[in-house]
């Protein structure tokens, strides 16, 4: 052996954990791609109940978008050592995330009230199941935000590499579930029209 590498050689500038997260997200994309293509294939086969998507789902879209923005702002404040804004915006993102979940639940109730049941025609079932599986992922994200809150309120505000990384991972995931919902709602609207 002629020469030795000094270290565990890390090739790209992207941190391995971020990379792991991105790849994991790719597999989630495939999962929802499968759901939505199943929807398209099934819809094309006919016998498909048409109904209007309850407005609640549009309101919840606004809420989760706002949550994403506020988390982004919190991250900026975190980096600028602006402790007050960092904590408050983080809390806001968390509360908006929870609100989103509640609103999805209300949306399902609205569906029931217009007679679209979970177990009826597949067009309704798809909406429930897809938004439900998405909500489970949001719930996971809310859990992660909760951990972030514990850090924000429990630890003193220090911008270390490790905490920055952790925040960025949280941020990426949260933006992901947010955009995923945006895709889903646009998909539902386009398919219904």
């Amino acid at each position: 052996m002629s020469e030795l590498a000094a270290q565990n050689y890390n090739r790209s500038k992207i941190h391995p954990q971020k990379f792991l997260l991105w790849i994991g997200l790719a597999s989630l994309v495939m999962m929802f791609a499968a759901f939505t293509s199943a929807y398209v294939v099934r819809q094309a086969a006919g016998n498909w109940l048409e109904f209007r998507i309850p407005n609640m789902f549009f309101y919840s879209t606004a809420v989760i978008l706002a949550s994403s923005l506020s988390l982004q702002a919190s991250y900026a404040a975190f980096k600028k050592n602006n402790t007050g804004a960092y904590k408050k915006l983080l809390l806001l993102a968390f509360v908006l995330g929870l609100t989103f979940l509640v609103m999805q639940y209300l949306g399902w109730q609205d569906l029931v009230s217009i007679g679209v049941e979970l177990t009826g025609n597949p067009s309704g079932s798809f909406l429930y199941i897809i938004s439900g599986v998405h909500a489970v992922h949001v719930l996971g994200g809310v859990g992660v935000l909760f951990v972030a809150l514990m850090h924000a309120y429990g630890l003193s505000h220090k911008v270390t590499e490790k905490r920055k990384l952790r925040f960025e991972l949280t941020l990426t995931y949260w933006h992901f579930v947010d955009f995923l919902w945006l895709y889903l709602i646009v998909f539902f609207v386009l398919q219904a029209s």
Binding site: A5, N8, Y9, N10, R11, S12, I14, P16, F19, L20, I23, G24, S27
Partner: peptide, 18 residues
């Protein structure tokens, strides 16, 4: 999936110098 994300990340990121 857990195995796969690891294999991909390791191959892309952790190859030794050269």
């Amino acid at each position: 999936l857990l195995g796969g994300v690891n294999y991909i990340t390791t191959v892309l990121n952790m190859r030794t110098k050269g």
